[in-house]
Design a binder for these strands. Structure first.
Lengths: 197, 197
DNA sequence: ACCTGAACACCGTTCAAGT
DNA sequence: ACCTGAACACCGTTCAAGT
């Protein structure tokens, strides 16, 4: 029986930034941000924690930046030329998608919401302004609208997370609002905001 | 020369929950949330870290809850009966005050925004609904308005923090938006939202 | 009742060393 | 180039002990 050079080197995909961030996101979604440690992340990847630093030289800071980028990346699907007049519907679709992604990864929300990153934020608002520019909305009205809409979406997602008891806490079936309540509230508020633009 | 029984016991105010939370807030405002540790907090209070647990049995969790309560406490000044018709102005005042407090304590914002606390959130929205109830706004319109407004205020505050480079980072005088820009954006968006209610 | 000191089980990160 | 192992300087928290 021929001895393998290493148990691991054979049937394990090599480490990569993408695999690392994916594993980190899985830990955060499943166990919460507080349980994301370099050592646990190493375990999940079947690697010593220190191997991660070879791919993320800035360490945990860079890992958290990667999580934010993965969740908050703004793929504001630009409307096809034919739809240009329907910019309001395009904004509505974008808002619903963005909110869904934020709430789905509630554990990352504290990072998305407050990590200082002016360039990433500028990119998001720019893509919103582009939708409105194609729809013929004046520049400065579009700039205000972009910040207002993004603020509402991000803020409401935060309220939803804040207003939902942790699974396993008390009063889970008590006075707390249900998912359906939050859906309704988000839609109602979104209609208000879009109507005002 | 008479020996003092203890250097500290004499001229030091006794520890209290309030003093602890105040000192913690000073550390967070001055150095950031990441530098708030029980040991550093003990130093600031001229006490061993372990003494804090006598006043906050739930430890750091309770400390963070205290910070959130201190910053996000919603003193929605209820309008005097004479002002009841001016509920829109009352909401505007409330929104400006709340936003100012959030931005002033930017370091606590990640906690305010996402710490699960349904009762505290319900209290805030209830006080907003009360302002509108006195102004004669129908119940369910007021409920939607309260969530929309609160979502906008919290979300915009988060955008401001996210869009402001840390003091000492690069491009501080570069492409980043100024305080005046953010003030203008907040006011413009607030007018949009209030106009839609 | 209030605080201390030592200890425990963790962290993130460095660095020299292995392959 | 990529990963490991030991080590360092921290964490939050417990517990017995002091006053």
């Amino acid at each position: 029986m021929v001895r393998q050079p290493s148990i691991n080197a054979q049937h394990r995909p090599p480490l990569s930034t993408e695999r690392i961030v994916d594993a980190a996101l899985r830990i955060v979604d499943g166990q919460g941000l507080g349980r994301l440690t370099m050592r646990r992340l190493g375990d999940a990847l079947e690697v010593e924690a220190m191997a991660i630093y070879h791919h993320l030289p800035r360490g945990k800071e860079q890992l958290l930046d990667g999580l934010v980028a993965h969740v908050a990346a703004a793929p504001a699907a630009r409307p096809s030329p034919a739809d240009a007049a329907a910019w309001r519907d395009a904004l509505r679709r974008w808002a619903r998608d963005y909110r869904a992604r934020l709430v789905e990864h509630a554990g990352v929300l504290p990072l998305v919401v407050t990590r200082r990153n002016p360039p990433a934020l500028a990119e998001t608002t720019a893509s919103l302004r582009e939708i409105m520019r194609l729809g013929g909305v004046p520049e400065d009205a579009a700039a205000t609208a972009a910040h207002t809409l993004l603020g509402y979406v991000v803020g409401h997602a935060a309220l939803e997370v804040r207003g939902t008891p942790r699974p396993g806490d008390a009063d889970e079936a008590g006075a707390a609002a249900s998912t359906a309540d939050w859906d309704r509230r988000f839609t109602a508020g979104l209609d208000l905001v879009l109507g005002a633009l």
